[in-house]
Design a protein around this nucleic acid. Sequence first.
DNA 1: ATGAAAGCGCTAACAT
DNA 2: ATGTTAGCGCTTTCAT
Lengths: 345, 345
Amino acid sequence: MQTKSVTIDEVSKKANVSKTTISRYINGKFEYMSEETRERIRLVIEELEYRPNTIARNLKSKKSSLIGVIVADISSPFSSILLKGIIDYCTQKGFQTMVASTNEDYLKEREYILSMIDRQVEGIIINTAGNNLEFLENLQLKGVTIALADRVLEKNIFDTVTSDNEKMTYKVIESLYEKGFERVGFFSETLGLNSTRLIRHKCFLQKSEQYVENSEHLVYIIGDEEGKNNYTSYEKALLSFTSSNEKTKNAILAVNGVAMLNIIHAAKKLNISIPNNIGLCGYDDWGWTSLIGTGISVVSQPSYEIGFKSAELIIKRIDKGINYKSPIYLELSSQLIIRGSTSLT
Amino acid sequence: MQTKSVTIDEVSKKANVSKTTISRYINGKFEYMSEETRERIRLVIEELEYRPNTIARNLKSKKSSLIGVIVADISSPFSSILLKGIIDYCTQKGFQTMVASTNEDYLKEREYILSMIDRQVEGIIINTAGNNLEFLENLQLKGVTIALADRVLEKNIFDTVTSDNEKMTYKVIESLYEKGFERVGFFSETLGLNSTRLIRHKCFLQKSEQYVENSEHLVYIIGDEEGKNNYTSYEKALLSFTSSNEKTKNAILAVNGVAMLNIIHAAKKLNISIPNNIGLCGYDDWGWTSLIGTGISVVSQPSYEIGFKSAELIIKRIDKGINYKSPIYLELSSQLIIRGSTSLT
DNA sequence: ATGAAAGCGCTAACAT
DNA sequence: ATGTTAGCGCTTTCAT
């Protein structure tokens, strides 16, 4: 891209020293040269506007100061906050980030990861689309530094930062039934390989058993596939849920912010009032949740902190070398925020 | 990071050919070798799991297939959609992206841009924090390929993709007065160097003159500095606006989605009903805008397309070489969506 | 305090 | 159809 750029050679000639000395200068090893030389080099570099070629330095030194970041869906607010956490920490530590988005495709995930390794990234933070346990394990065995952000794989294999999904899912369901709701439905897009959705789903089933007979039929999956509990739209699912038992007090737990938004849209279209006709609670506390109706109750996730911490973990791992001890698993706390959408009057 | 990686040398030895032939193979120049050799190389590469070192290839070839992306605030939904557009196009064209966020700091912007150039990116897409006209012009003169996304600098210097801010600002103000509002206030965070805010502000003043005497005093800036029209919080500004003239029908134009959200929060806190006590209209149509109250009227911006197109522009520029013709300026269309927040009954 | 020389892993001009 | 050779721009021994 540069028409022609200044190299270390030109600088060394103009400053009348060897490339070695220039190299020492740009690496801050001033002990190896006289005050005078140092100053002369400084001036020449300034004059020529010399900037070392990072690519060339990397090739030789094997240090790229690059962290790869793989997110499953860059357009979701969750990812953008996660990314901010990651980038903030990395920048602060002198690392740059390469970002890719897999659109929930685990094959793309593999492709992007390999491609980043080819670029000599020093570590990779992954918000995984799933299904890549073996693939990632192999990479780690080969010396690739990996950290998982938000979405988990088997514990004790990778450094992982996530949130307390189990605990909060139990808590939110308990809270709903204790408030007096008699049926709590679980609404989600296709669970797929998404660990977060899978965990919330599993905990939903487990916890619901304390309160209802058959929790399976309270699950509503919105997606394209055939199968039981499977609907093609939020409206259909919502209609099915509300009509299947009109005499009980019903509430919905939405698997994430996107699902929650879709449910609110569907409810509005169907003229179903929240919380008068149905209660609603979800995950993700984005700026608007308190403004819709009497406010939507949510589990507020520490998205930024998950990003920040995962970056911290990976950079520490890089600094100390890969084998200093077993994987670290961090579970950050979410917060249950109760608003009007779950009040029974 | 890799414990030790396979190089072209090992492959060439194991395959009993020269490095050149391997190089030809990995660059797809199969015309230069026999079917037999080709197959032999294929097998060796597979066996050794050889992957070419991108860093080394870049150093020699001067092609990094990397696009730098600088956004002003990565945590804003606007940026994340913009980014998605950029990354989608780049990925599709075989480019990878390096992302940095300046937090609206033009000095950081400079730093990150230089650092990306040091990494030999082939082009840089910038959502500029402002104030870097001269800096960027100089870089472009030196051969750096630059495209601006959303925020503009002087026209006809850089490839630029933005939206029709002037037109839509006129249109939204016209629409408000035509609906019967008698005073339209303009609410914004500190304008700073943000071209989008500055343009909307300028157009607000211009257009408002058609309808009111002194449009200057209808501007409410929320920020830390001292100065006229300057408030420390949205609540104070809102209170000042509403109380300064209680007999007229008032409406607010919020400079962007974030400001809009803040105004709604403030109105709620102050028990000011939208639109009964005050009309509201903003920019950015994020999923929730139709769900708050009777819906918030907005100018919906083509954020994804701005990202996508700016990536297209820069990659075309890269492919054809820097000087093929004068800068391209693209203004994509926004859409005015009228909802309940601007109805006068 | 400074430099010469040998690479890092690859590409490409120029053989043959 | 294949190889030799000379780098890309830097870092890093090993000398002096």
